[in-house]
Design a protein around this nucleic acid. Sequence first.
DNA 1: TCTGGGGTCCTAGGACCC
DNA 2: TCTGGGGTCCTAGGACCC
Length: 432
Amino acid sequence: MRQQASIMHLDLDAFFAAVEQRDKPSLRGKPVIVGGIGLRGVVSTASYEARRFGVGSAMPMHEARRRCPHAAFLAGRFDAYRQASGVVMGLLAELSPLVEPLSLDEAFVDLAAGEQRPLDDESLRGLAAALRARVAEATGGLTASVGLGSSKFIAKVASELAKPDGVRLVAPGTEAETIADLPARAIPGVGPATMERLSRLGVTTIASLRELSLAELVRELGKAGGEHLHALAGAEDDRPVEPERETKSISVEDTFERDIADADVLAGIAERHARLVAQRLAGAGLFARTVTVKVRWPDFSSISRSRTLNGATDRPEVVARVAQSLLDGLDVGGGVRLLGVGVSGLVDVAQEPLFDLEATASGRVVEEAEAPVTRRPLAWLPGADVLHDEHGPGWIWGSGLGRVTVRFETAETGPGPVRTFAADDPALHLSR
DNA sequence: TCTGGGGTCCTAGGACCC
DNA sequence: TCTGGGGTCCTAGGACCC
């Protein structure tokens, strides 16, 4: 453990919802919920206004609609999120070469690896304040919460304590007392299942977790989990900030609006998924040895089937063929809720296998493989950016029954007017 | 009308090898 | 003549995170 609070954790507040409010002035100050819009969607991010109604991440969308029916429900615009995220990560990179992104809206920064600067508490607080101001300025007003501590764990806890829109520095030497009264569930890695086991041992807070011996924790949670938790409970954490983590797996999966029991339909979906996976593999310059198919049944239980080849491939037809043969081994007659295809065992050189299935049908399959992967036509998803030949830029408020409702406003305009068009109005286009 | 999608890490058992 | 002891790879499942 280092002697300075020189590990930073930055977390953008209600990120997806905040980007929507930035770009849609009429939604500022109002409940906004971004997530899966379909029958089986879940909430990805809720704005703070929506959280007051008890809406939170991972909540089924129908439940969110019940709790906050007047919210704006949006499908999400990942290009916009990626763009804003890139700007913020760029600002972090100016602080230190050691930046570890955890997701679009979160990252660790090791400030001790940056250029020489004082790392006393006051200087670090000043650095965080300046960073937050620059984030807001560079992103059109997004707010970030920043935690500073002597380890990743403490920095992450600190940013949580700083939320929303704040800074928190946990002074070196005060780590254990700072976390003592937090619920054990606040430790990253303690989820519902682990918390349930801990509760049965009488654990509530981190202080009470500390009363369990290492042996007890290992017995209850296994070697790795037990040792990790024992260390974190005592505020011991020497994990380094790792800027480059290599990709270990790539997958595509889809939950269907309604369960699918038709093997031919599922085969077509598996093929599409396999092509997308292979496309991303090739895009990353990687090759895979193992292909996995995942199926979720109507009762929500799921299984996976995998096969490791004796070489590595990035060829869509090979991934598709292996996925198909794995799927063939399953009885889908009772219906399938979700189908996924993934690859792992990634290497950066091809070792094309002498693949026994290849010789049999390569000609036809290769032709198919060269056809570009076609994106499904985009529906008028709520929240999507559009451009109208006459009225200019706006966003989809809602659609249905052959009509589309658009609000014409941008981050710069202030709240704008709403108009409704026919869904096939030739003057209306999706942006980008 | 319950429960996304993209990941990571861990465990456990069996095969296989020296 | 009761049958060691590792190590690694593979498969499957589960917990967890954002």
